[in-house]
Structure formats: structure tokens, C-alpha cells
Design a binder for these strands. Structure first.
Lengths: 190, 190
DNA sequence: TAAGTTGCCTAAAAGCATTAGGCAAACGTA
DNA sequence: TACGTTTGCCTAATGCTTTTAGGCAACTTA
């Protein structure tokens, strides 16, 4: 018997590709069915509904991103690790804009808890270990880094930095240096 | 004659309220018509289509936010101004989640150029003047601040920081202090 | 080969966005 | 005060979309 779940995964993977082609927002059952050459109703044997489809694409993207980031920081520490991790995010966003948008899809609490999202924060903590911050500050720093990475890439992809000097690449490098410097000189708690 | 545009503005304002009630994504012509007690088709005399409706709500939110931020930083400088500006963003997001989401709606280049988005970056530059960064670094810093504010509030609203210590309020304060410290000790360009 | 599963199908209900054409009331003007 | 114009709504209709239900042929496994 062709195992259940296998086909569903192929469908989700096609959904991820579609997201990169037309944008995550535009991924709908009907559009995906069109891409797969089947009737829209047939999708519903693989996926519960439109929201479920998007959730599964999000989970796929989150995992892919975690895999790449994990590979990128292996064997690195401090500034190098920070840079490698951050670049992984940014590169992934440009290579797979639809998947990256999917990774930012708002999951309900349970799904999020079971997602690769946790791997992401664990990796950030691993990087921060090289900076020897007190534990409380480390959490603040994780939150700061997450905010910057997500925020920067989102603004950049929205075209916020495109028609003005200096180049976005330059700002990115400069900002990562600044963050590295900040992490080595984190101010005492107020 | 009842001036054209007046009614359209009332419609958009109702759309903004609706966004806060049910979420910006869920604001559609049919839903808004329901709220206004008119037929869906009637909306199309005030608004070109669904995308136009969302764009107008976005512009409204952007302006509102700029007004509040401008009032908040008046008479302040340095750390105080930074804090006031940042808090305005965060408070606005919590008081008007739908409008805030609208403010992040991706506008096409022309519309964005004519929007209050420019006021936002001008205000950030005004704040940064208090830190006396070289001009190039100032642009990098503007981009960093924009990334952090947007990124942090988005993650926070997505529930990213809710079920773990320390509290999000604490991280926010700590992160703003860290940014203030960073701006006063921005590393030399690499 | 028999039984069960899978992956697709058609059919149909309900809802949405959008266009077209119409009508009554409000308005500024002569 | 009567007139033409504008406004703000309406109904009707088209062609999408999501989702549920029921069916059928092919393939898998025992």
C-alpha cells in the first residue's frame, strides 16, 4: 500500500515551491491544485484545509532554515558564528522568499511548540555562549538578535533600503559588527 | 453637494476599526460592508477594490503612528527620545493591532514614497542626531533601529516571548538600554 | 486472487470580489 | 424655487474560491 503521508508531503513540498514562485500569501488550494494538475477538491485528501496547508509549508520552511543554520554555525564561534547564522537567514530569504514568508506564518501555540522554532532559539543561545553574558542578559540578547534578523530581512525584502546609499549589504555587515560589539560590551542592567 | 472623498474617508476609518477588531488580514470588502450595514457592491463607489482598501488603511495607520511618535519625541533627546519613540511603536501595536499590521502592509514604491513612511525615518534621524554618529553610520543605525522596533514588536505580538521569563517588558527596557549604549559606542567601520 | 487503501474524480453548496446599470435624495445654482 | 448634477446606495449577474460528500479505478499486500 502506498503509505499515507508520503503524498501529503509531496503536496506540501509543491506548495513551498509555489510560495517561492508567487508568494506565500497567494498559495491557496485552488492555485496549488492548478500547479499539480489536479482538481482542487482532490487536494483535500492530503490537507485539511487552506490554513492547514499554510501551516505545513511553514513547518517545512522552519525546519529547512534550521538545518541550514545549523550547518552554517558548525565549527564556528563568536563573531564568525553570528555572521554565519545571520547570513543564513538573509540568504535563505532571498533564495526562497515564499518559504521565508511561510516561516513567519503565525502558528498556534501548540504547533509552534512542536516546530523547529525551538531549534532556532537554541542555536542563538549556542552562539551567545561565546560572548559570556549573564544568563538573564542572554535571554534579552536572544530576543534582540531575533528581532534584528527578522526585522532587517523583512524591511529589506519590502524594498525599504533599495533606492538609497549605502547599499543594504554594507548596512548588514556594519550592523552585524555593531551587534558583535554590543554583545561584548553589554551594559549592566538598569 | 456632499464632497467626494469625505465618505471614502469614513469608510477607510471604519476599515481601520474593523482591522483592530478582527485582524488586518481579515478585512475584506464584504466584511467591511457588513460592519457598515450596506451591500458589498456599494463599497465600490468609495474604494477601487480590496487592495485599494487595504492600502488606504495602511496609509491611515502610517500617518497616525507618525503623529503619535512625533508628539512623543517633541522636547526629548538622546536616550529619552529613543525610549519615547520606541514605546510609541510598541504601545500603538498593542492598542491597535490591526492598524499596526496595516502599517506593515507592503505598498508599491510610488505609494510608499508618498506615504508617511518618510516621516518615520526623518524622526529616527532626528533622534540619532543626539548621538553624533558619522553620517554613513547614521544610515546604518536608522536601519538597525527600524529592524529592531519592527522585529521585536512582531515577535512579541506573535506570542514569541509570552511563556518564558524574563517578561517581555523587561527585555524591551534592557534592549533599549543596550541600543542606547551601542549608539554611544558605535564601532569604527571595518 | 480477494480486500483494503489511495488518489483522483464529479457534483454541489455557500461565500467572495467585482462590474453594470438604476434610482432617490441632497445639493448648488440660476 | 425649479433644474441638473452628484452622491450613495441598491439589485442583478458573472466567475471565481473553499469545502463537503460520495464514487470509482488502480495499486498494494496477504
Amino acid at each position: 500500500m502506498a503509505r499515507a503521508g508520503l503524498a501529503a508531503e509531496r503536496v506540501v513540498r509543491a506548495g513551498a515551491e509555489l510560495a517561492d514562485e508567487i508568494g506565500f500569501e497567494q498559495v491557496t488550494p485552488s492555485e496549488l491544485a492548478r500547479k499539480l494538475g489536479i482538481k482542487t477538491a482532490s487536494l483535500y485528501s492530503h490537507v485539511k484545509n487552506a490554513h492547514d496547508l499554510k501551516t505545513r509549508i511553514a513547518l517545512l520552511a522552519l525546519e529547512e532554515l534550521a538545518d541550514q543554520a545549523s550547518a552554517a554555525i558548525a565549527g564556528r564561534a563568536g563573531r564568525d558564528a553570528l555572521r554565519a547564522f545571520a547570513d543564513t537567514y538573509r540568504d535563505y530569504a532571498f533564495q526562497h522568499p515564499g518559504r521565508f514568508a511561510a516561516a513567519r506564518f503565525r502558528l498556534d501555540a501548540d504547533t509552534a511548540a512542536a516546530s523547529a522554532g525551538m531549534r532556532h532559539s537554541r542555536m542563538m543561545r549556542a552562539i551567545l555562549r561565546g560572548y559570556e553574558l549573564p544568563e538573564l542578559q542572554e535571554t534579552h540578547a536572544v530576543r534582540l538578535l531575533g528581532s534584528v534578523f527578522n526585522g532587517y530581512v523583512e524591511l529589506e525584502m519590502a524594498g525599504g533600503f533599495s533606492h538609497s546609499a549605502p547599499s543594504s549589504d554594507q548596512s548588514w555587515t556594519e550592523i552585524l559588527d555593531a551587534l558583535d560589539s554590543l554583545l561584548r560590551n553589554w551594559p549592566a542592567p538598569s
